[in-house]
Amino acid sequence: MQKIRILHVVQAAGGVDRYIRMLLKYLDKEKFENILVCSQDFHEEDYIGLVDSFEQVEMTRAIGGNDLKAIKEVRTLIKKYNPDIIYAHSSKAGAIARVADIGLKNCCVYNPHGGAFNMRCSAKKKAMYTAIEKVATPFCDKIICISDAEKQSALDKKICKDDKLQVIFNGVDIESYESGAHGVVKRKDLNIPEDAFVVGMAGRMSPQKAPDVFVKMAKRVKDKVPNAHFIIVGNGNQEAEIRKYAEDNGFSDSLHITGWVDNPMSYVELFDVACLLSRWEGFGLALPEYMMAGKPIVASKVDAIPNIIQDGENGLLVKVDDDVGASNAVMRIYQEDELKDKLVTQGLEDVHNRFNARRVSEEHGKLFEKIIK
């Protein structure tokens, strides 16, 4: 049987990069051939054994003159490989790939990995992102939503009709994590005492992930628990602001910022409580990762997060921008061992039943086969 050839187009690295690697790992190699067309932010060595061909095109996050050059280059690669399906990942690549494919009549699948129109930004920007999605929608066959909340948002904004949308929940590579090395990073490596109470977050220090709320929560917890320490796994343009707040409030020695790391889960393993206090979230891949590591979760009640976290069952939910509520939730976990154990147990059950990477790839495989029939 001839393999189904899929050409993946992707601009944004980070979480999308991890998602694609996970998807390709479990996608049936007997049925599918995969070509990756990616931005300069990707590394070919990460895709050895996962793709049949690797191509790079300069793509930038911001809208600009470079986009026309990128569209032309992607169109050339579409003609070169003549795929059965083009799979565009994230908003920018989604626009570039769909425009590049106009008139070429390939099947096209688009996954925004969290619609840009759901970002907390100015009304003018939201309107622009919504307009771009509406204009580009006729040029693809299926739009994959990574949560029920994302699908509902697309319907509310009239991006397209219901039959063009398909929900495939995100997942994490549980098998890889459980069979991998653990305890690689020690508390002493970050100058954290073994008996410290450690609260952490994994994510960019950017407005979406609300590191400013995290650090304000940290101050409140530190006032009540003197041996509390705080870890931010990631980098971002708010780092100086976050460090200054900790310094001004006298706990900079208890705040540990790792910067970009290749092994974020090794740092998550150090947490006693894991936070995701995002202001908007298409899915929140950190949440099943926290569950996989057996960590109790405090998260904001926004967008897709309540699709994943049931308050009081597998985590605690707080309002957006609520550092007081977040600190209270963290303190509950600190003080109530029974609650902590319940959240961890249910989280582990949920990640195995609902957020396994194999399920993500299987659902994609069924969709790909259905589309080209």
Rank of each mutant, 00 (worst) to 15 (best):
Q166E: 12
N227C: 03
K158Y: 08
K25G: 03
M292Y: 09
L36T: 01
D52S: 14
N263D: 12
I63S: 01
K134Q: 07
K80D: 02
S53Y: 10
E150K: 02
N249V: 04
S206V: 14
K244E: 12
A13Y: 10
K340S: 14
Q310N: 11
E44I: 14
F368I: 03
A357E: 10
D52N: 14
I305Y: 04
V298Q: 15
G200L: 10
C140T: 12
M128P: 02
G312W: 05
A304Q: 02
L68C: 10
A12M: 13
R120Q: 13
A293G: 07
K69W: 11
I144E: 01
K29H: 08
S252N: 14
P296G: 13
E281T: 06
N314L: 04
G203Y: 04
H8F: 14
K124Y: 12
K295A: 12
S90T: 10
A218I: 09
D173I: 04
E289F: 10
V225C: 13
G294Y: 06
F139A: 06
A181G: 04
I231F: 00
E289T: 04
G183E: 06
W280C: 03
I102E: 05
H256I: 10
C38P: 05
S39A: 06
C121V: 15
G49R: 03
I257Y: 08
E55T: 07
Q152V: 00
V99G: 08
L339V: 12
A210P: 04
V261S: 14
N66V: 15
A218H: 07
C145R: 00
K25Y: 04
I146T: 00
D272F: 08
I231N: 03
T60Q: 10
P193K: 01
C121T: 14
I232P: 06
D322Y: 02
E363K: 06
R332I: 11
P211A: 12
N235S: 15
I257N: 15
V261A: 07
Y177D: 09
S266R: 13
E313T: 11
F32W: 11
N227H: 10
Q335M: 13
Q208T: 08
K224D: 09
Q56G: 04
L343P: 08
A70K: 02
R18K: 15
N227L: 04
G115T: 08
I6M: 12
H229I: 03
E338W: 10
I297A: 07
H89R: 08
D17G: 09
M331C: 07
C160Y: 01
L155T: 05
G114S: 00
K301I: 13
H89S: 14
V330T: 01
S254L: 09
G294Q: 07
G49C: 08
D52E: 15
A240Y: 11
F42Q: 14
K164H: 01
A12N: 11
E33K: 12
S90L: 04
P112E: 01
E289Y: 07
D322M: 12
V324D: 11
K244C: 08
D84K: 07
I146V: 06
V320F: 08
E313H: 09
A93K: 05
V51S: 01
V199W: 00
G284C: 03
Y245D: 00
I4Y: 09
P264Q: 09
R279L: 11
G14N: 10
A62F: 00
I174A: 12
N237V: 12
I4A: 08
V360Y: 04
H352V: 13
